[in-house]
């Protein structure tokens, strides 16, 4: 395949912590408008992989190309500005602000010091906040303090904060952790909706949930790719069953 068709191209990526290779010579290609799920046992390097892409951890060697921009050399905020958004494993929101403010502050304008001092909330911003609040099921809690939200709602809010930035690549680290069954279903719908004009990379353990959303699944094991393909293919793969899914 022609490499320009991929939105994210990861080649020979390695990171070692004091000799331990958390990610080992990894190659990963994500297409436009694809929803990819990465699964694997604890310590497989899933979260480290996201850390590497968003710049939280610096790669020891290898390359990460996002739309022909090399990310490994950029600072975190610059990577975000190229169009990569990342949700953390534990909901990471601003507890002292309201839901509205949480979303508003994530709007990708007024990002410089001076810009933020003179930033004014235009009707377009308000419209975007209300639209996204609706999408993440939080219209009713819009003026509530974020600290008062339930765990699941906090997860949605963080996804909403990323949607405010309208990223071309959205990375979600265990988005349904701690959610009720109903909330999981709603989240699955949400992800299926928001991956329409962007690529989404999800880390998840809940196989039922993965089945609902994944276009393609990558199995990581000890920092390496064990298998890759459709959900059915992965579920019938002998090695995957041995190391992760179990019999």
């Amino acid at each position: 395949m022609n490499p320009t068709e991929f939105i994210l191209t990861i080649e020979d990526l390695t990171v070692s912590f004091d000799g331990f290779k958390a990610v080992d010579n990894l190659n990963l290609y994500i297409e436009n408008n694809e929803l990819r799920v990465v699964i694997g046992p604890n310590g497989a390097g899933k979260t480290t992989l996201l850390d590497l892409i968003c710049g939280k951890t610096k790669a020891t060697s290898g390359s990460i190309k996002f739309k022909n921009t090399e990310l490994t050399r950029l600072a975190e905020h610059q990577i975000v500005r190229t169009g990569v958004g990342r949700k953390f494993q534990t909901p990471s929101i601003y507890e002292n602000l309201t839901v509205y403010q949480n979303l508003e502050v994530s709007y990708p304008e007024g990002r410089s010091v001076i810009g933020s001092l003179f930033f004014t909330t235009t009707p377009a911003v308000k419209e975007r906040v209300t639209r996204i609040a609706d999408e993440i099921f939080l219209t009713e809690s819009l003026h509530q303090q974020a600290a008062l939200l339930s765990h699941g709602q906090k997860q949605w809010l963080e996804i909403g904060m990323l949607l405010m930035q309208d990223p071309e690549l959205l990375m979600l680290d265990e988005p349904v952790a701690g959610m009720s069954a109903k909330e999981r279903d709603l989240t699955a719908d949400l992800l299926n909706r928001i991956c329409k004009n962007r690529s989404v990379l999800v880390i998840e353990h809940d196989m039922e949930f993965v089945k609902k959303i994944a276009h393609k699944v990558t199995v990581l094991h000890q920092g390496k790719i064990l298998a890759e393909g459709s959900m059915e293919k992965i579920q019938s793969n002998e090695t995957v069953i041995d190391v992760y899914l179990g019999h």
């Binding site: 968003c54 939280k56 600072a75 975190e76 905020h77 975000v80 500005r81 958004g85 990342r86 953390f88 990471s92 929101i93 601003y94 507890e95 002292n96 602000l97 502050v105 994530s106 990708p108 990002r111 410089s112 963080e158 904060m161 930035q165």
Partner: peptide
């Protein structure tokens, strides 16, 4: 003050 990392990963220096 709340979550410095979140601000950084929302594109702010």
């Amino acid at each position: 003050r709340d979550k410095e990392e979140r601000v950084r990963f929302s594109g702010y220096d």
